[in-house]
Design a protein around this nucleic acid. Structure first.
Lengths: 145, 145
DNA sequence: CTAGTTGCAAAGAGTTTGCAAGTTG
DNA sequence: CAACTTGCAAACTCTTTGCAACTAG
């Protein structure tokens, strides 16, 4: 189910091979994620309003459907920050997931990686007799503002 | 805002000192969390139906309000697993939060601790110029079934 | 007493879905 | 052209809220 990340055109080829169609809406949605800084996450609503601004024909329903579809094919990852909306980000590297620092005051988020955490996750997982699929770490903290 | 965990009666004293009233509903909600195995998490709906079964008079609205209230006072922690409902768990030890292993197949969850991760979280947080408040780690994995 | 709390039902927010019309391969 | 996809609006689910009645301290 999960795909390794690749260029946009490789991805499209692979999705087509699965029987999915490349509609203008889907292509624009992919563009948005490829243009996003590494690790940044957005909501269906955000995708919708961004594309609307760019005069792309898309409905909110399609935005929701597309994100869900891409997530189920391993292109996007659904991440949760206890906000009221689901967030999605492009999966760029299956092997070392990045994590999030979330300010409890201003709600700003920042991405980071840590091979220490990843190694520990592997170890713990093995110790509990399970096979690691993904690690998500959230550091709730207070930034200096 | 945050309280150190303690016995139920100490907690009640402290909440009263903040001007909160101890209603039968709130006391029963606290009971539920104190009876829960360490680290287990439940939803407002679950609290409501559990108490209803025990013939306690409570409404779903009060269940939601109480959980939110207790969370805002540092008694409960809101945790998210990308399910459709918010989950809450009793905060038992502020210094070393426990984490969750979630099976991507059967959705069963398992709690664990790791001082390695905690230490790394502290270090990373300091490096990014923020003050650590809470760490939440989720290992998505496949259990052996 | 009186400020805090409850229950109810209605309102909200986010997300999903049925269906007819439109497109992709 | 057949299967897939879209847009729209209605439906749904989870959660919050206004308000009048009630109650803990």
């Amino acid at each position: 189910m999960t795909l390794k990340t690749q260029t946009k055109s490789e991805l499209i080829t692979e999705l087509k091979a699965k029987g999915l169609r490349l509609t203008p809406q889907r292509e624009r949605v992919l563009d948005i994620f490829y243009d996003l800084p590494n690790g940044e996450h957005i909501s269906a609503e955000h995708v919708y309003t961004t594309l609307k601004q760019e005069k792309v024909d898309i409905s909110l329903a399609t935005s929701y459907r597309t994100l869900k579809l891409l997530a189920s094919h391993g292109v996007l990852r659904e991440v949760d920050f206890g906000e009221d909306t689901k967030q999605y980000e492009l999966i760029r590297d299956e092997d070392e997931p990045h994590h999030h620092l979330i300010c409890v005051d201003c709600h700003e988020t920042k991405e980071f990686e840590s091979s220490v955490i990843y190694a520990e996750a592997q170890r713990l997982c093995a110790a509990m007799g399970a096979e690691l699929v993904d690690v998500q770490v959230k550091l709730y903290a207070r930034c200096k503002k």
